[in-house]
């Protein structure tokens, strides 16, 4: 164990950095997608609701590893066959797309449910005063909804962080991918996977603590 840590520790730490980078990219774009599709599924518009529902259903119905292979290998091959293009993704780009699209689908469900859990009377009261739909949404409904959503959003962030490990299959040099390299050289799989597990655990515990602090701050002074 000590030997692995001393020889490959820096490499594994760098790999954790890549994991965090990928997770961050996925989360940022995923949150944007989640907000867009989450709001699309609550507005009074059949077309936007349908599009959001289709998106969520497709992503929920496809395992992420399939999505990863599809985006990284399938899409460039398809483009080449149809248009003769030489387009390829880097592993980071493909990984970001996979994570973002995946995280976005689940986030949109969290946002939809969070908004729908707020008493419709809140929206009606705001509208009756002359506020537009979106103004009412941003000033009255969302501030209440977001507070309720935070635990689920944190949960989704953690899941997305762990999902980066799936992207080892397309060769992105994140933690699991690099751990496999270490094992290929040292054959010490028990020690290596133990170290990797603890590394994930520590990062996620820290994330959880930050989230708890944020939640406490948001709840302060309110009932």
């Amino acid at each position: 164990m000590v030997q692995i840590l001393s020889m490959y520790g820096p490499m594994l730490l760098a790999a954790m950095g890549q994991t965090l980078l990928l997770a961050l990219c996925g989360l940022i774009f995923g949150s944007v997608l989640g907000i867009i599709f989450g709001l699309s599924s609550v507005v009074d518009n059949k077309i936007s609701k349908t599009i959001a529902a289709i998106y969520v259903h497709i992503i929920r119905g496809v395992p992420m590893i399939v999505l990863a292979f599809f985006v990284f290998y399938g899409v460039p091959y398809g483009l080449k066959t149809i248009f003769g293009s030489k387009f390829t993704f880097t592993a980071l780009q493909a990984g970001t797309v996979c994570l973002a699209v995946n995280c976005g689908a689940y986030m949109s469900e969290i946002i939809r449910a969070g908004i729908q859990a707020i008493d419709p009377g809140q929206m009606e009261a705001a509208r009756s005063l002359g506020l537009s739909y979106w103004r009412s949404m941003f000033r009255v409904v969302l501030p209440q909804a977001i507070k309720n959503m935070i635990p689920s959003i944190v949960n989704q962030f953690i899941i997305t962080l762990k999902d980066t490990s799936i992207l080892s299959v397309i060769g992105f040099p994140e933690l699991v991918n690099k751990a496999q390299n270490v094992i290929a050289i040292t054959f010490k799989s028990f020690q290596t996977w133990s170290i990797v597990a603890v590394m994930y655990l520590v990062v996620i515990l820290i994330l959880q603590q930050v989230a708890n602090m944020l939640e406490r701050r948001l709840n302060r002074g309110r009932k």
Binding site: D119, G121, Q122, L129, G130
Partner: peptide, 19 residues
Amino acid sequence: NKVRENIGMVFQHFNLFAN
């Protein structure tokens, strides 16, 4: 929205903004 600015409404369940 403009018209509603001149029509106040009071609801059965108050609907005060909880936030």
